[in-house]
Design a protein around this nucleic acid. Structure first.
Lengths: 208, 208
DNA sequence: ATCAAATTCAAACAGGCGTTTAAAATAGCG
DNA sequence: CGCTATTTTAAACGCCTGTTTGAATTTGAT
């Protein structure tokens, strides 16, 4: 295992758990059992390390997500909103094969990135991976053409909020569900619960 | 204006904007134009200051929220989910009279508290203000009795995520909406957009 | 006015932070 | 092997953090 990957592996766990601001390079290098200076040697700075951690996941996720959404767009039949959101399931759960707890870790990182560091990750995602967003809005529009661009804007951001927030605290929620309802839940179970919710939210009748 | 309130006023603005971890006591005391040591003299520690900032809002909000929800529960007619979530509007917007931009600031703080500092604020809220949660779940149950406790648990947390996440980035979203759709939006406008969304999400047909 | 209590203040504390340095170790190629 | 380039290492850098100290000041009741 290369030093670079030791750092990335340690960093993603700590970043997901404690946020970017809340994790120090010394915690990362001691968990990864590498020298402190290795981070700046291999990545240049902490900010670049954060980008590298996110890129590793995005490069794994985005082609699969893009083709799943593109398939919906090119298909002749009109998809339901459930179809659109369900298109995320496969690509997201694939991250579990890419890396242990990959799905959960990635979604937690996404949540951290949206609230930590005053939205620089939002900029990073929308500028580096614009096609994913374009295909997604296109698919939603196909499923619900009556929705105006402005209403879609708001509802998609609400959806992003639901997903990202839920996942960034999914460990705690899964624990509570386990103790209160004596039910085993995993990240796939949470995803299956959240899809009808966001689909119904986006499909809500238009306010006037 | 007392030193204590100068500190609280400066702290809430910075906490909302940059998070709890991301704000230093020196930033707070210099914005509030008080001595650095005053924070520890009046509040004991940074952690206690955070609690005090949140308590000031919760003590203003929770009695109004509780009575609005209690009214729904005691009423003879069955409320809709829209009614339940609309019960939040009045108490939340009242924070704008309590303090300039109070609604937005409070919701941003709530969002910060849920993701910063590993959920100690969640513990604080649920243990210090349990009645608000109890009345809320009771009202939702009255509006949608078929929903099992477990499904309600998940959907209410999804809702919390939608609200908190949206509001913690509401400034950025309002800016984007303004430039993309040339439409003036304020915090009340966002709240009116989000209520049909979360009401429809909670009302979604039960998955099986 | 007096005296004690409450508050403010400048200064320093110990410790953690991201980053840099220069020497030591390792690797890869002729 | 010998030599160069890459990588690892321990140590230090300057800066910022939350907190504490003890003296100066202000306050409020007698």
């Amino acid at each position: 295992m290369s030093t670079k990957n030791k750092i990335l592996d340690a960093a993603e766990v700590l970043f997901a758990d404690k946020g970017f601001n809340g994790t120090s390079l010394r915690e990362i290098t001691s968990l990864g059992e590498v020298n402190l200076a290795a981070v700046n040697y291999h990545f240049g700075s902490k900010k670049e390390l954060i980008k590298a951690v996110m890129s590793r996941y995005m490069n794994e996720l985005s082609p699969r997500l893009e083709s799943a959404l593109a398939a919906l767009c090119q298909d002749d039949v009109q998809p339901t909103l459930n179809d659109v959101f369900s298109a995320f399931i496969g690509p997201l759960l694939h991250l579990n094969e890419f890396k242990e707890n990959g799905t959960s870790t990635f979604l937690q990182l996404l949540g951290r990135g949206y609230t930590d560091s005053q939205g620089f990750l939002r900029w990073f995602l929308t500028t580096q991976y614009p096609d994913v967003f374009a295909h997604f809005t296109q698919a939603v529009h196909k499923a619900y053409p009556e929705l105006s661009a402005e209403e879609m804007f708001w509802r998609l951001h609400f959806t992003m909020g639901t997903i990202v927030f839920t996942m960034s605290s999914s460990d705690a929620l899964i624990d509570i569900a386990h103790s209160d309802f004596e039910r085993e839940v995993d990240i796939a179970g949470v995803i299956k619960q959240v899809i009808p919710y966001v689909a119904a939210g986006v499909a809500a009748p238009i306010a006037f």
